[in-house]
């Protein structure tokens, strides 16, 4: 046994401080968290949807990249599979929406033998340059939309759609 024995008063002091400390911490923690909430928010993907496409494997030739996300229609939840045409322009990754600006068909890359290096819409022979710019004289009236892209762990993430930023007017 050691010589400095703990008196009853000391013992109670220690215990009460300890318990009180925990209680105070328990009350303060949520308050502090509320106060600094924006800092704690996870910065992850946000609206970005992961795909199986490795960024390193992309080339200058557009490839199909499928991605799916959950869509809620009133009470009906479904997994929607969508597609993007993805290629590299220098070091920049470009993801174009395949939805034709004419009436909403899905366009294909080099879908027509007579027009290589172009996107082609089989419905009404609409054509687009590689950067999505519509070719005058074909039905589409605007350039293909573009997806925002991100990279995470070497894989491509596809984000919200926005108007084409590659076409210079």
């Amino acid at each position: 046994m050691s010589n400095n024995r703990v008196s009853r008063r000391q013992f109670l002091n220690y215990t009460l401080t300890g318990v009180g400390g925990f209680m105070a911490a328990g009350m303060l923690m949520p308050m502090v968290r509320f106060a600094i909430d924006p800092v704690l928010q996870s910065k992850g993907a946000g609206d970005f949807v992961p795909t199986d496409q490795k960024v390193a494997e992309l080339t200058e030739t557009p490839v199909k990249v499928n991605f799916s996300f959950e869509q809620v229609d009133a009470w009906y939840k479904s997994d929607v599979t969508a597609m993007a045409w993805v290629y590299k322009e220098g070091d920049k990754v470009v993801a174009l929406s395949p939805v034709c600006k004419h009436l909403g068909c899905t366009v294909g890359w080099e879908g027509d033998k007579n027009h290589p290096d172009e996107f082609f819409c089989a419905c009404h022979a609409g054509r687009y340059h590689k950067n999505g710019e519509n070719i005058p004289g074909t039905p589409p009236l605007g350039p293909l939309d573009e997806f925002e892209v991100e990279e995470k762990d070497g894989l491509l993430l596809i984000g919200p759609v926005r108007p084409n930023t590659l076409v210079k007017k």
Binding site: C100, H102, L103, G104, C105, T106, C121, A122, C123, H124
Partner: peptide
């Protein structure tokens, strides 16, 4: 198919 050829 409808999705692919929506416009036609």
């Amino acid at each position: 198919i409808e999705h692919q050829f929506k416009g036609r």
